[in-house]
Amino acid sequence: MQLVYVFDAYCGWSHGFSGTLREAASRHPELPVVVVSGGLFTGPRRVPIREFGYVQGANAKIAEQTGAEFSDAYDRLIADGSFVMDSEAAARGVAALRQLAPDRAAELATAVQRAFYVDGLSLSEPATYRKLAEEAGLDADAVVAAFEAPETRAAAEADFHLAAELGVTGFPTLLAVDGDRVIPLAYGHATADEVDTRLAAVSTR
C-alpha cells in the first residue's frame, strides 16, 4: 500500500493540509508517499489573480480552520492583482525536486507551498527552486536544470493525467492505493488522527 497525495501548489487548501500530510507521513514511515500535482490553474484558468475575487476570503477561512500561515510577503506578491498562478510551472518545480529526492516528495511539496504562501515567491521562477534545493541540501544546479528541461514538462502533464485517472476532482486529496484499490483518506481538510482512523479501516478490509 502507498499514500497518494494529489494537490496543487497554488491551492490554499492544499497549503492548509501541509501539517496533516507531514504528520501522517511521519506516523507511517512504512508507507511510501507519492505526490501528484493536480493542475488547478492551467489553460483558461491561468489568469491574473484579481480574476479570482474569493482568494483573500478563502485564505482567511483556511487559516482559521487549519492554522496555515499566509504572510505579508505573500500579500505583497499578489497585492496589485497581476500575479498569475501557473500550475504547470509549479508542477514542473515539484517534479524537478521530486526527481532528485523521490523519498522526500511530501516534505518538498509542502516546502514549495511555503515558498509561495510564506516567503512570497513565484513558483514560475527558477530562482525559487534554487533556494528550495539549497535549503533541502539538494544539488541546486541539477534542480534548476530539471525545472527547465522538456522531460519535466512531460512529467507535469503526466501528473495531471494521473490525477484525472484517479478520479480526483478537487485538492487536496489523500488516497490509499493498494493494488487496484483506491481508497479516499482525506479531501480538502482532515486531521492526522482522522487519516489514521480511515487508514486503520482500510487495513482491516
Rank of each mutant, 00 (worst) to 15 (best):
residue 98 R to Q: 15
residue 99 Q to K: 14
residue 100 L to I: 01
residue 101 A to W: 00
residue 102 P to N: 00
residue 103 D to N: 12
residue 103 D to M: 08
residue 105 A to E: 01
residue 105 A to M: 00
residue 107 E to A: 15
residue 108 L to T: 01
residue 108 L to V: 00
residue 110 T to P: 01
residue 110 T to M: 05
residue 110 T to S: 06
residue 111 A to T: 08
residue 111 A to F: 05
residue 112 V to P: 02
residue 114 R to G: 05
residue 116 F to I: 08
residue 116 F to V: 07
residue 119 D to V: 09
residue 119 D to N: 10
residue 120 G to Q: 12
residue 120 G to F: 12
residue 122 S to P: 11
residue 124 S to Q: 14
residue 124 S to M: 03
residue 126 P to S: 06
residue 127 A to C: 04
residue 130 R to S: 01
residue 131 K to P: 00
residue 132 L to T: 03
residue 132 L to C: 02
residue 132 L to G: 00
residue 133 A to C: 06
residue 133 A to F: 01
residue 134 E to G: 09
residue 134 E to D: 14
residue 138 L to M: 05
residue 138 L to K: 07
residue 140 A to V: 05
residue 141 D to N: 09
residue 142 A to Q: 11
residue 143 V to S: 03
residue 144 V to C: 09
residue 146 A to H: 08
residue 146 A to Q: 07
residue 146 A to Y: 10
residue 146 A to M: 10
residue 148 E to V: 02
residue 149 A to R: 01
residue 151 E to C: 05
residue 152 T to Y: 00
residue 154 A to M: 12
residue 154 A to E: 15
residue 156 A to Y: 08
residue 160 F to K: 12
residue 166 L to P: 06
residue 168 V to G: 00
residue 170 G to A: 15
residue 172 P to W: 02
residue 172 P to N: 04
residue 173 T to H: 06
residue 173 T to I: 11
residue 174 L to I: 07
residue 174 L to R: 09
residue 174 L to S: 05
residue 174 L to N: 06
residue 176 A to G: 14
residue 178 D to S: 13
residue 178 D to A: 14
residue 179 G to M: 10
residue 182 V to T: 15
residue 185 L to E: 13
residue 186 A to C: 11
residue 189 H to T: 11
residue 189 H to R: 14
residue 190 A to C: 06
residue 195 V to Y: 12
residue 196 D to G: 12
residue 196 D to Q: 13
